[in-house]
């Protein structure tokens, strides 16, 4: 399976390990992502007023370039990119007059009529690859691992573009259970982490990630598993430093571990593996077994 791939800025900056892990597990599953030849930032947040048409240009340009490059659908890893591109796509189909205005202001350099589809990698894994195929590829079931899947906002809301039930999603649970992990759940899984407030109101983010991590820990979770690079940054840097913060992993990295891939193929440092007691114990046991 070959799919066009839109990385987004952060996948190339602070979230490179997510891309590395995604490419590794997709190789193992026989899926090839082909990065778009030229692409720009999607704009990250969908513009919510009728006055700022210029701010729709970034996602429209991504979709227009996708079509120019001959593809009809595109996969994203980043939840923010997915949401912004999918909503721009929806707008292109529902309000073509707004897009005509954008096109006119650029000498028709930007032409797009809503005929592409935007996919999140999780959709590809669930709907194209299938969880059964994922389960069949598992070489190292994560049986001893207790994880708290965190959905955040952009995978689910608004429900017009979300990829699972906005109130009671099951996608990450199903995925992690297919890998053999024990899933801990709670109502904060779908509550926003504070997103870009990390820039100048980090206290808002700290309050949210602290509460969510506390719920995960109270349920017995040893790690938080999530998808969005901004959630990842917030959970990684803004959990309280007193007491041990819960480690944070991209779902791609957890899939890779279950596939038996090496941590370095998944952008994981030894330090991070050491934060997962069951994996560390098993690695020790295997090392002993191998030596004997």
């Amino acid at each position: 399976m070959q799919l066009a791939y839109y990385p987004g800025c952060t996948i190339k900056a602070s979230a490179r390990q997510h891309e590395q892990a995604a490419l590794a597990i997709l190789r193992a599953l026989g899926v090839e992502l082909r990065e778009m030849a030229e692409w720009n930032c999607c704009g990250v947040v969908h513009t919510l007023t009728s006055a700022n048409l210029i701010r729709h240009m970034a996602p429209v340009r991504v979709l227009a370039r996708l079509r120019q490059q001959g593809a009809h659908e595109v996969v994203t890893l980043c939840d923010m990119c997915f949401n912004t591109l999918a909503r721009a796509n929806l707008l292109a189909r529902q309000q073509p007059e707004q897009f005509a205005a954008i096109s006119a202001s650029t000498d028709s350099e930007l032409r797009y009529d809503g005929d592409a589809s935007v996919l999140h990698l999780l959709q590809v894994l669930r709907d194209r690859v299938g969880l059964a195929a994922l389960r069949a590829r598992v070489r190292r079931p994560l049986r001893e691992l207790r994880v708290y899947p965190y959905y955040g906002c952009k995978l689910l809301r608004p429900s017009t573009v979300g990829i699972d039930d906005p109130e009671i999603p099951t996608l990450l649970r199903d995925l992690l259970e297919a890998l053999g992990a024990t899933v801990i759940e709670g109502h904060l899984q779908t509550r926003c982490c504070g997103a870009y407030q990390a820039v100048d109101q980090p206290e808002l983010v700290a309050e949210r990630v602290t509460a969510t991590a506390a719920q995960a820990r109270a349920g017995g979770a040893e790690a938080i598993v999530l998808s969005c690079p901004l959630c990842h940054f917030n959970f990684d840097t803004l959990q309280p430093r007193n007491g041990a913060p819960l480690p944070v992993f991209y779902y791609t990295q957890v899939i890779g571990l279950a596939f038996g891939l090496e941590p370095e193929e998944l952008g994981l440092e030894t330090r991070q593996i050491d934060q997962l007691p069951p994996l560390r114990q098993r690695d020790r046991a295997q090392a002993k077994g191998g030596a004997a």
Partner: peptide, 10 residues
């Protein structure tokens, strides 16, 4: 803050 309008390139 780039909005990808491409005015610069044009």
């Amino acid at each position: 803050g780039c909005v990808a309008c491409n005015t610069c390139a044009r």
